[in-house]
């Protein structure tokens, strides 16, 4: 009896894994597919009959690093993204602290205003921003990208951090006050460590948005000096060589891997961050 129960239990477990495994395969299919494209020779890409087991080739891999300044694009991406996230955190943490902890007239309106900047279609501000940056002499530089990404993400980074701060019991701050700590000490020693998961989540989401940012990058980066992965990827689709699908696939994969790793690493916090405090964690 007991062994039968154990058997049916293990059967249902197998079934469950089979279903989940199938679903995972389905979701990963595009990734596997462009990996398969990326590591095959150019001659095996466009054929009359599909080739399921292509020849393995590193042609495209060498090509993207030798013929294109791929390291530069990667470096630009990393600098612009990390810089923008740092700017966001420096601005968002005090803003969120103020929005979540002090009561003053118009506080909720200010909070909503900050969030509302995210609701605007980017195309509306594209041209004014282009002129602003041109007049400031910032076109075609990584610094400009940093500022743009920071500006785009600032609203929801503030909002996510604010939602985490709201969940910290007021008692903690009262305790710190009677223990003799000032506001900045409380923020630095009590609040920030307590909401570290929220800060990480907000940073990662900001990074993902920044990696995927295309419109403003294209507007501001006019030469490879400031190209990032997302714009470089777009540039592969044209040129004298025609469409180089295997290189496109590999660059796309390179742009995808860092995000993928980070998301897997913090997935537990991510869903919480995306609900922006609507659900208690």
């Amino acid at each position: 009896m007991a062994s039968q129960r154990r058997k049916s239990r293990s059967e249902s477990l197998t079934l469950r894994y089979a279903i989940l495994g199938g679903w995972a395969l389905f979701c990963l299919m595009p990734v596997l597919w462009f990996l398969s494209i990326g590591f095959r020779p150019r001659t095996e890409i466009i054929t009359a009959q599909p080739i399921y087991w292509p020849t393995f080739s590193l042609d495209a891999f060498w090509m993207i690093f030798e013929d294109w300044p791929m390291w530069k694009y990667l470096r630009n991406s990393v600098l612009a993204i990390i810089g923008s996230v740092l700017i966001d955190l420096v601005l968002a943490i005090p803003a969120a602290y103020s929005l979540s902890r002090y009561t003053y007239r118009g506080r909720d309106d200010i909070g909503f205003y900050i969030l509302s900047t995210r609701m605007m279609a980017p195309a509306i501000v594209a041209i004014p921003i282009f002129f602003l940056f041109r007049n400031a002499g910032l076109l075609d530089s990584v610094w400009a990208l940093m500022l743009i990404y920071a500006a785009i993400n600032l609203s929801f980074v503030t909002w996510i951090i604010r939602s985490y701060m709201m969940d910290i019991p007021k008692e903690l701050e009262d305790a710190a006050k009677t223990d003799g700590a000032g506001d900045l000490r409380i923020l630095w020693e009590i609040i920030i460590p307590a909401i570290l998961p929220g800060i990480i989540t907000a940073s990662v989401i900001a990074m993902i948005f920044a990696i995927n940012e295309f419109l403003f990058t294209l507007l501001i980066a006019s030469t490879p000096n400031a190209y990032t992965m997302s714009v470089a990827l777009a540039n592969f689709t044209g040129g004298s060589d025609g469409l180089i699908y295997n290189a496109i696939a590999l660059v796309a994969f390179l742009a995808f891997v860092p995000v993928f790793i980070v998301v897997v690493a913090i997935q537990k916090h991510l869903s919480r961050g995306l609900t922006m405090g609507a659900v208690k964690g």
Binding site: L172, A175, T178, E189, I190, A194
Partner: peptide, 18 residues
């Protein structure tokens, strides 16, 4: 509060979690 020489114990303990 921080300049008054008082120490307070709270209902929810208010220990610093980190």
């Amino acid at each position: 509060a921080r300049d008054r020489d008082v120490a307070m114990v709270f209902q929810g303990y208010a220990l610093y979690p980190n």
